[in-house]
């Protein structure tokens, strides 16, 4: 195995085009564990750590841009991720434990596309766009099209995720991620990401995504419609939860039975919405 550490994106993309069995390594939290367990064999490892342009959080008037190599810990502490984007910040702070949060990157997380991870649902709720570069150029992938199946994404061979772009979201929006796990630091049994706008006592905007509830994060527009215009009373939440649960297809494993995960969906949805309704933004 060879390890290469290009200093620029262009160089990295060249390596990916040139080498047959090359693979990016970001934080390495997942990839190295998989290599140790003989689950993947890699000929050429392309370290992305030295590419400055892939790191950090920047903002413009209408969006926040998170470089693919930005660590979870930095995202969890970012003062820029407020309002609707609180959902992403809240999710980052609940990933694993500090050691993993200091190591793992948002790019690595979404490229790995583990449906039990926290970012996929949070980014879906935040309506993110994934920016990917290849030797041919750069393209923008809407988050709804990025995750394709268990551990599969729309990324093509030779492509590198460079950034996650987050629109500011509607005025007055607040976001929150509710994660349920067996023990602290475990992957979610079920997670709910929500972004809301309340106009007085009435919900005027809702964007909800479920994590750990199927091969990809789940969003159901009808469920959001059931919430919008309501005071987020029990009936509205129950209807939204019913629609979401209908679309969910959770696995049955040691983190929870399918049935339990389905029981959790309305309960965690209510928790997420009530937290946001009461005005507490994600404190993590």
């Amino acid at each position: 195995m060879r390890y290469l550490a290009p200093g620029s994106l262009k160089e990295a993309l060249d390596i990916l085009r040139r080498e047959d069995d090359a693979r990016c390594i970001a934080g390495g939290a997942t990839l190295v564990a998989m290599m140790n367990a003989d689950l993947v064999a890699v000929d050429v490892l392309v370290g992305l750590g030295r590419i400055a342009e892939l790191s950090g959080i920047t903002e413009t008037d209408d969006e926040v841009r998170i470089g693919a190599m930005t660590r979870h810990a930095e995202i969890a502490a970012s003062p820029v991720l407020t309002g609707a984007l609180g959902v992403v910040r809240s999710a980052a702070g609940q990933i694993a434990h500090p050691a993993v949060r200091n190591m793992g990157t948002i790019g690595g997380s979404i490229c790995h596309a583990d449906p039990a991870a926290d970012f996929p649902a949070a980014l879906l709720a935040a309506d993110a766009t994934i920016e990917a570069a290849s030797a041919e150029g750069t393209r923008q992938i809407p988050i709804g099209e990025f995750f394709e199946d268990y551990f599969e994404t729309a990324l093509r061979e030779g492509e590198i995720v460079t950034a996650i772009r987050l629109p500011r979201g509607p005025a007055g929006a607040r976001g929150h991620h509710v994660k349920f796990s067996r023990v602290d630091g475990d992957y979610a049994t079920v997670s709910v990401s929500a972004v809301l706008v309340m106009a007085g006592a009435t919900c005027s905007y809702a964007r909800i995504a479920l994590g750990s509830s199927g091969p990809v994060p789940i969003r159901v527009t009808a469920a959001e419609e059931a919430l919008v215009g309501s005071p987020l009373d029990q009936a509205a939440i129950a209807e939204a939860a019913r629609l979401l649960a209908e679309a969910a297809d959770p696995v049955d494993d040691v983190r929870g039975t399918t049935e339990y995960r389905l029981m959790l969906i309305p309960r965690l949805l209510a928790r997420a919405l009530n937290t946001l309704k009461d005005g507490e933004t994600a404190s993590v």
Binding site: H97, V183, D184, G185
Partner: peptide, 9 residues
């Protein structure tokens, strides 16, 4: 997959 309690549990 097999979870033992960690410090925060």
């Amino acid at each position: 997959d097999y979870k033992v309690p960690g410090p925060l549990d």
